[in-house]
Design a protein around this nucleic acid. Structure first.
Lengths: 229, 229
DNA sequence: AAGTGGTCTAGACCACGAC
DNA sequence: TCGTGGTCTAGACCACTTA
């Protein structure tokens, strides 16, 4: 059996985890490792590159590869579509549109989306339920310049999230997580009390350099967002 | 100039973003693309593999590569050390130990850490300030079986986080984000009112299959955790 | 100046899985 | 069955960065 990059990676990881290669240690260069493992340099390169991508080691030309003293601990979150999130738990998904208006972009949002004063945006407010229990409150603003079809879109049956995913192929985004105290209005929708702590995510989505949408997702009381890394 | 995998990747991304390759589209196979771009198949492979890693496309042997209908939107968070987080904002970092005890593992934690009843754990409570303002409250339990040195460790000058990072080289973890209402005790420490909504992360860290530590980090009111993707 | 990683190439073999 | 991606190889050139 030939030595694969996964073999090399696993062995290096093991040596790091066992403390044989302590944080700060300078690792052998690719050529030496290739010889030691009996494989090509490209194989070692792939293994070490992945370790670097994962923040375990740090690579510099000429300086070599070192085990990171303080590994960059990074978590990867997949941002699910709420329908799938609910249905994957075996719950019944329900959706309702609360409000849909065309309005001048509010000042606080103008900066975020880099829009001109007086420009119009579509604001959509809706709710998502799991087994009839409030799950998530969604408040969204959409820039109709990029997605003109939003002016015709009817969000009474399906949420704007799924609609946008189908309409806009690919985008980059900025996302924030925070805790908020429920307003009376939010509390009414979420079936909790005003002032209760709720978990919220805010996301601004861009296509190239122009903002498409800003969304505020507020989850029911006690919601946790979890991941492994 | 030769064609690099970044060139290929950027061009493919562009075609996807422009809708030339719409979601669901079957992309040409690696050999054809290599010929079209005038490069080796390995170059195309690297470009497409990275697109797959980022959740933009989906690859299956024999079936080929498709643009994902619903791209896996995933965010990468780097989990910073509090001290660095604060100092990188140009603020002055301050730390204080609140409590340090050796106690029987509480029932609710036993399951999380997979410990035996009656086993002892070290509990550390401490605070982190930025410019003298409460920034983060830390409550941590450490398994002394894995890190016996914790029994001798004195956390009066430095937080257990940095200490653990130096002691335990590498680990995997599960992390959760949530919103909580401040208890009176928390409120006293954080300089807010009981009931205020606070952002909290909880993290369980493992070395191989054994739990090292469970930590509960509660941030000051209004804190946001932000990332781009 | 010189060593290290970054990448490309051309060819090869193989495993998966759709047909 | 057989096309597609997954990976390895051996060699090469280059860019960065530090000594």
């Amino acid at each position: 059996m030939t030595v694969t990059f996964k073999d090399v990676k696993a062995d290096l990881l093991d040596k790091i985890a066992q403390g044989i290669m302590a944080p700060g240690t300078l690792m052998p260069n690719e050529m030496d490792l290739a010889e030691r493992y009996g494989c090509a340099r490209a194989t070692v390169n792939r293994a070490m590159r992945e370790l670097a991508d994962e923040g375990i080691v740090e690579r510099k030309r000429k300086a070599g590869t070192r085990v990171r003293k303080a590994p960059i601990r990074q978590a990867r979150f997949s941002i699910p579509i709420v329908r799938e999130e609910i249905e994957s738990k075996g719950s019944e998904y329900r959706y309702a549109l609360i409000d849909r208006t065309l309005q001048d972009v509010p000042d606080w949002l103008r900066g975020r989306l880099a829009l001109k004063p007086g420009q119009e945006v579509v604001r959509v407010v809706c709710m998502h339920w799991a087994d009839g229990i409030p799950y998530q409150h969604e408040e969204r603003w959409i820039n109709p310049e990029i997605v003109p079809a939003v002016l015709e879109a009817d969000f009474s049956a399906n949420g704007p999230n799924e609609w946008l995913l189908a309409e806009v192929p690919f985008s980059n985004a900025e996302i924030s997580f925070m805790a908020v105290e429920a307003t009376q209005d939010l509390a009414d929708h979420m079936g909790c009390f005003a002032g209760n702590a709720l978990f919220r995510t805010e996301r601004t989505t861009w296509l190239k350099e122009t903002a498409i949408t800003f969304v505020r997702l507020t989850y029911r009381r006690g919601h946790r967002m979890t991941t492994r890394y």
